[in-house]
Amino acid sequence: MMLLSMLALLMVTPPAETEHFATGTGFVIVWRSHALAGATHAGVERAFIMVHGAGRNAEDYFRWALASATVAGQLSKTVVIAPHFKSRSAGDPVEFGELEWSGSGWVSGEHAVSGKATSYDVIDQVLEVLNSQEHFPDLKEVVVAGHSAGGQLVQRYAAVNRMEPRMHVPVRYVAANPSSYLYLNDLRMQLGAACGTDGRCTGKFVKYWDAANCTTYNRYRYGLEARTGYAAASSNEYILEQYPRRNVTYIVGALDTRTDDSTLDRSCRAIAEGANRKERGLIYYSYIKTQFNATHTLEIAPGCGHSAVCVFAGPAGVKAVFGGTD
């Protein structure tokens, strides 16, 4: 399967097209396989929105998503969309009128440096376009997916967004290898305990053992306290009611266990969630299932470390996004 995935990636020659997607008082550039403005796309049954990681390499993520659709045999029925959240402070060239974010503010739904839109508003407006039965008359579902920092965006967006209830088709969320998660209360796994892929753990969720030395561990974007940006407008009650019921899949790379990765969040707030990405993912999956009776699912990406192409062009990603292959 992995060999087929890699071959598909090499063989995909998609239209390298971008679109200036207007939102709020500016625009973002999106890579897309089908025009989002003014066109009708009969036969498109699934939308696959792929959010890039901290490297903000949206074009690469667009092509990896196309590879995933090719492996699944669903490319002709899928519109692939990859928004580009730029940051001038991180070295991105920014056009006049283009929205940009300060540092990693786009990950947690903060407002753009200039303009009223947040990064989560951008996802909302992409969903709004897809919700048009005139332009996408055969659409059956929308999948919002992301890897690493993009996985963080997807997980938090799934928890706080207010757009899903307005959609006429189901929305699913796939969060792969995020460095941290949004917790819904102040509980964390006991020190020294671990969780398995079956959701069973060697310890319990308790008041955080090091809270006195990490007083911000439960603030947004790690917890619900002191929420900012888009998330500030969603009440605790709404989040606690909606998120456990939403269709969320977590993907954890079987080899994503490094603690010396420069992109791994090593703040005390993230350490409260586990030592590495794999551990954090397994713990969070158990947490959301046992504490909130969530119907969420977990996929393990075999042979994958912290690699978006390995995850999404491999069996775990294809299954999570497309339900597997025939």
Rank of each mutant, 00 (worst) to 15 (best):
K204T: 11
G146R: 10
S267W: 14
T295G: 01
N57H: 15
T40C: 02
I288R: 09
T257G: 04
S68R: 05
S132E: 05
G146F: 05
A275R: 14
R172P: 00
S235H: 12
Y284A: 11
Y285S: 03
R166W: 09
A232H: 07
T228H: 11
L255C: 02
A39Q: 15
T215H: 15
R46Y: 07
V318D: 05
D92C: 00
L187N: 06
T215F: 15
Y181K: 04
V144A: 01
V113W: 00
C268H: 13
A175Y: 08
H41P: 13
T18W: 04
G314F: 14
D256T: 04
H306K: 03
R166M: 09
R156W: 04
Y284L: 10
M6K: 13
Y243A: 15
T259D: 05
T228K: 13
Y238S: 05
E98Y: 06
K77N: 12
N276D: 11
L187G: 01
G146C: 05
V28T: 14
K278S: 09
S102N: 08
F62V: 01
L153W: 03
R63A: 05
V154N: 02
N236H: 15
N177S: 13
A226T: 10
L99P: 01
I288W: 13
G26Q: 08
A194K: 00
G324W: 12
P15Q: 10
T78G: 00
G203Y: 00
G103R: 15
I123H: 03
E164P: 04
Y250F: 14
T228Q: 12
P170H: 01
A212G: 10
L66E: 03
W31P: 03
S286T: 03
A270Y: 15
S307C: 05
Y222L: 12
E110N: 08
S5E: 11
S68L: 08
S68V: 11
S33L: 04
S76Y: 02
A270V: 15
V28E: 03
E17C: 10
K204N: 14
D198W: 10
A232N: 09
V154I: 15
N218S: 14
S33Q: 07
F312E: 08
G146L: 06
E17F: 00
A69F: 14
T202A: 05
S76M: 06
R227T: 06
A149Y: 01
S262P: 01
I29V: 13
K207C: 02
A117C: 09
Q291C: 10
A145K: 10
A301Q: 08
A316L: 09
T228A: 08
G115C: 09
S114F: 12
S132H: 00
P170F: 07
G303K: 13
R221M: 07
L282C: 03
L4Y: 11
A176Y: 02
G43Q: 13
H34T: 03
Q291S: 08
K204R: 15
